[in-house]
Every structure is written in structure tokens, then in C-alpha cells.
Design a protein around this nucleic acid. Structure first.
Lengths: 223, 223
DNA sequence: GATTGTGGGATTGTTGAACGATTCTACGAT
DNA sequence: ATCGTAGAATCGTTCAACAATCCCACAATC
């Protein structure tokens, strides 16, 4: 039965539009397609060998994820988050993640481990001066926090918020360095959780959001 | 300047796909198109006088809002929420709304009024034995709570959660009667908020979610 | 009788071309 | 320098076509 579940992903062959969307999403989040860039239907479609209709469908999928923005009769652009966007994003994250973290004592051990593990790995790498994956580790930590709520809808929406924040980092010309700053914060939160002082951990997380929002929006204004 | 803002909506003429999507959304939420129904591209497109491509774009918009579900090479269907969906929805709402409600003392008076007003109106109508709009009033109450967070992204996602719940009510053959039951709960929450006992209001809201989830999933199983 | 092929028919997935509508750009008039 | 206008480029929408896939009914097999 487990093998069947594994094969399921293969059987569910993605549509052409889905594959194109995945490719474009990767390009955008990797920074090859910079925020603000306009994506011409003809140029992209010709380069990828898909028809305009299929490409437009891929654009729609990425618009749903807030990776792209659509302007009527003007085309689609790589999203370029503003200071107001960053405030909105952190307001949402504050409510979601602080709320989820308060459930710490009511969830399974596997859920708790999904919060601890990313921090443990990041600490291990940092001790070896390896800061290559601190960005994704930080995101995994916060994904784990959202996962405490046990709602796929909430986790999916949070993934969209994270993706949008990655674009904001890109605009601020900060990607890895940004996350790196906050590893000590994550350690402290995990320690407080392990000590059973959940409310203190929540408060610490809230302060983290304050600092991160201020830092990021400050860099955005300078741009 | 205010007139300019008013005209803005007119200038931003909706695309054909958007108009089609709005029409279909209304039909679905009104119950004319029942959960589980398959929407044929040819039939719907022919009836509305739009091409398949445009209709497919409208379908994508509604799929984003979780009103429709798309199955590869099989078509789109009106979403039919299951018991698992209801649990997931309430897990998300619990985190979002309880988290937002905790911000009660940190928001503007206008935001607080957006929570109180729907309950006041519902009470006034109930005293006149008018239960016509209790459903939308209940939703307005919860929209107000989410609005305390001050995040359009969070509010938009919550609207999608609400729409999905409306479909679940439809499957459970309960729409207005369901909301009506919970007016007393809403009153109590507002009273606790006005008394300044925010944490008690949050706890009351949490219990509301427990009761509502149990009630709704029970009716779903019976179906 | 239940399960397993095996057709044909209907529907979706994708492409390509076409044309009106809208936006952008550059040039020239005031 | 500002404004208006013509032309080019691009988007929005439709239509037609064909391949790929799914569904359903019927026959074959155990």
C-alpha cells in the first residue's frame, strides 16, 4: 500500500501548463527572473515551445500563488513586493504562526519534531561555517510551526506567503544573509518550547516578527 | 477624490473570464449548481456564449477559490467538502480567528466596530423574528474578526475558507438554520470583548468552533 | 456471476491562426 | 516643454482542429 502511494505521484502526470508553471516559479524564486520584469507571452511561449493559451494558463497558476501579477491588457509581471506588502505579510504571519505555536502541547511528537529538526540542522551546519542552506532551513522551521495547526489549507497559504517574502528579500538584495541573522532567535524559541514555557516562546516569536519586519521594510525603502 | 475612487471600479472593467467566474460563483453558492456536479465545458460555454478558452480561464479562477475542483482529463466539478475538509477548515479558522481576536486592544475603533455591528444587526432582526440574513450576518461577524489582523491576504484567504464552508453547509442541507444557532454565542463574545476580558472571549470563540465543527461534521456523515 | 479485456463515443488538453481592443512609443504640433 | 496623434506591439477572445484521455457498454474468460 505504501508503494502504491509512492507511485501515485508518477501517475498524476502534471499538465503542460503545470510543468511550465513549475519551471517559471523556480526561475523566479532563484532570481533569474527579477521582480518587476514583464513576461511577454510571445517571448516566453516561443522559448518554451508552448502555445499562448497553455502559457496563459501557467501564468494564471502563478498569479494564484502571488508570484506573478496580472495587469489587464498589459501582461504579467514578476511580483515586486512593496513596503505595504511586507507589512501585510508579517501581519498575516504573526497571527498564523503565533496561533499555531500556542498549540504546541496539543499536537503529535512528529509535528513538534518538524519544528525542532530544521533548527538542529542549521546549528550543526553553522558550527562548520556552512551557511549554504540557512535560508531554506529558516523557512522549514516556520513551515513546521504552521504545521502544528494541522491544516493543509493553512500550510498551503503560508507557503504562498513565504514565496512572496522570498521575492521581497530579492528586491531588498538580501536572501541568505537575512535568514542567517535569525538562527539564534529560532534556537531560543525551541529551547523555550522544550522547557514547557510555550507562552514565552510565542512572545519571542512575536518579537522576531517585529525585528524581521522592521529590518526588511527598512531595506526595501532604501531601494 | 472620492468620486475618482468610485469610478475606479468602473474603469477596471472586468475581463470576460472574470464576469463568467462571478456568475458561476453566485450560482454555486446559491445552490443552483449542487456540490459534486460536473461542469461540462461545451454545455456551460454554449449556454453563456463564451469560448472554451475563456470558460477554462473562469474555471481556473474558481478553482483557486476552492469553489471548483479540477481533475485531469475529467473536467471540473463543484466542490463537495468531506468530513476531513471540514476538520481542516476549522483547524485553520481556529488559528486565524483566535489569533486575530487576541489583537482586540491593539486595533482601531473602526476595526472593533466591524465586529460588533453584524451582531447588533442580527440581534435587532431576530427580535423582529426576521431570520432572513442570519447567515451572512454570522459571516460578517467572523470577517470582522479576521479583519482585526489588518492583513488583506489573511482576509482574502478567510473569504475562501468561508465560501468553502458554505458548500459544506449545502452538502449538509443546512444553510440559514445553521448560522442561526450561533447568534447567542456571538453576542456573548462581543460582551466579553466590551468588558475587556479578551482572553475569555477567545476561549468562547474556541468553544464555538468546537461545537460548530462537531455539528457540521455530524450532519455531513449522515449524508 | 464476477472479473477482465476491448471496442466506440464523448470530453478534455493543446495547438495554431485570426482579429478587434488596448497599451506603448515616438514623432510632430502648439 | 506639453500635448495630441498615428503606428507598432501586445493582449483578449474566439474559432477550428486533432491528439490524448476517460467513460460506458458489451463481450470474453475464469
Amino acid at each position: 500500500m505504501s508503494t502504491l502511494a509512492q507511485n501515485k505521484a508518477d501517475l498524476e502526470r502534471a499538465s503542460t501548463a503545470q510543468k511550465v508553471a513549475d519551471m517559471l516559479r523556480e526561475r523566479v524564486l532563484d532570481g533569474e527572473l527579477e521582480p518587476g520584469l514583464r513576461l511577454s507571452e510571445e517571448a516566453i511561449g516561443g522559448a518554451l515551445g508552448v502555445s499562448r493559451n497553455t502559457l496563459r494558463e501557467a501564468f494564471r497558476l502563478l498569479t494564484r500563488d502571488r508570484i506573478l501579477v496580472h495587469e489587464h491588457s498589459r501582461g504579467v509581471f514578476v511580483r515586486r513586493p512593496t513596503g505595504a506588502d511586507v507589512r501585510d505579510l508579517y501581519a498575516a504571519r504573526r497571527v498564523i504562526e503565533c496561533g499555531a505555536l500556542r498549540l504546541w502541547n496539543d499536537v503529535t511528537e512528529a509535528q513538534r519534531e518538524a519544528v525542532r529538526a530544521p533548527v538542529r540542522q542549521a546549528v550543526a551546519r553553522a558550527e562548520k561555517n556552512d551557511f549554504s542552506k540557512t535560508g531554506s532551513a529558516n523557512i522549514q522551521f516556520h513551515r513546521g510551526i504552521v504545521g502544528l495547526a494541522g491544516s493543509t489549507r493553512l500550510s498551503d497559504e503560508s507557503d504562498r506567503l513565504f514565496a512572496e517574502l522570498m521575492l521581497a528579500f530579492r528586491v531588498a538584495h538580501e536572501v541568505d544573509a537575512f535568514h542567517q541573522t535569525y538562527l539564534p532567535w529560532n534556537r531560543r524559541i525551541v529551547e523555550l518550547l522544550n522547557n514547557g514555557t510555550v507562552e514565552q516562546a510565542v512572545q519571542q516569536l512575536d518579537e522576531y516578527f517585529d525585528a524581521a519586519e522592521k529590518d526588511l521594510s527598512g531595506r526595501l525603502l532604501a531601494d
